[in-house]
Design a protein around this nucleic acid. Structure first.
Length: 288
DNA sequence: TGCAGTGTTGCTTC
DNA sequence: CGAAGCAACACTGC
């Protein structure tokens, strides 16, 4: 769920809400969510009194650059959400104290809370507990494998650079579009939507795509991602904005999770087929 | 009731 | 060596 547009929406919101705030203290019920340093108490000690200077994104990773030469990296994986608000414990469960659309469902999966110096909180809710939090020395983070190995951001590159990403690669286009080492930020939902709009079959071998077809994929990638950011992302199942609202892009999904429905272009029934362990959704007639 | 499926990534296996 | 499979976890829906 949190793919490039959702992560971008999240950082735009967080910049307004938590930039220049200082961490007062933290709480968790799942120490394992912090992978680095390996000791949670060490993490707590290091994060206290650090100020958020800058918030940015590398692919789907959210990075808070802090005072003291440290950077906090958060990857939301499948079901993580960074949310901002005020919560209080009520019979062992976190309840939102400010009115708004935050639902108990999201609140009940809060596993990490940062208290801020404005009296509010930044929380990480994650149903499946796959999300990861790491504290790095800012200098080392930029040289780290996880950042260095990311492909370029599709919104920041030219058509020629995009084509270059796929040069000498082999495999199916959908699989490669989702490969974070080739271009970063695209996951299952947007790869389906991009290929539908580009009228390219998800199983097409990259080597057999014409120049014109890759150009079309480049153009539609930009269009789809930009539109999704404008609509504040997709809220399939439980994605939420930092203030709890839902994204709007889901309303205009053309193929993702629309198996059995009619293609909006030609009326053919949308298919769902497994590819590399994931579901690919596409129109078998107009995607060739 | 039970099992397949779910947005991601990285490690294991063949 | 590269590609496929699966585990991490918890829940939904058929």
């Amino acid at each position: 769920m949190p793919e490039l547009p959702e992560v971008e929406t999240t950082i735009l919101n967080l910049r307004i809400k938590v930039r220049f705030r200082t961490f007062i203290d933290i709480w968790t019920d799942f120490k394992n969510i912090v992978k680095k340093p390996s000791s949670f108490e060490e993490f707590r000690k290091l994060i206290k009194n650090k100020k958020i200077l800058r918030i940015w994104r590398a692919g789907k990773n959210i990075i808070f650059e802090l005072s003291g030469g440290l950077s906090l990296l958060v990857h939301q994986k499948l079901t993580g959400h960074l949310i901002y608000g005020i919560w209080g414990l009520q019979s062992g469960k976190w309840k939102s104290k400010i009115s708004g659309p935050l639902e108990d469902k999201v609140n009940s999966y809060i596993h990490l809370i940062f208290w801020l110096d404005d009296g509010k909180m930044l929380a990480l809710s994650d149903l499946r507990k796959f999300a990861k939090v790491e504290l790095w020395k800012t200098k080392k983070l930029k040289e780290s494998e996880e950042i260095k190995n990311l492909g370029p951001d599709p919104l920041k590159i030219s058509s020629a650079e995009f084509k270059n990403c796929f040069k000498n690669k082999k495999g199916k286009i959908k699989h490669l579009l989702m490969d974070q080492g080739i271009v970063s930020g695209i996951g299952n939902i947007y790869s389906d939507e991009i290929l539908f709009k580009a009228r390219i079959h998800p199983f097409r071998e990259i080597k057999k795509l014409t120049n014109e077809e890759i150009e079309r994929i480049y153009q539609t990638t930009k269009k789809i991602l930009k539109k999704a950011i404008k609509l504040k992302g997709t809220s399939v199942s439980d994605y939420r904005l930092p203030a709890g609202g839902k994204g709007e892009f889901e309303k205009i999904l053309k193929v993702y999770r629309r198996e059995g429905e009619k293609c909006s272009r030609c009326g053919t029934i949308i298919k769902r087929v497994k590819l590399a362990g994931r579901s690919a959704h596409f129109c078998p007639k107009c995607q060739v």
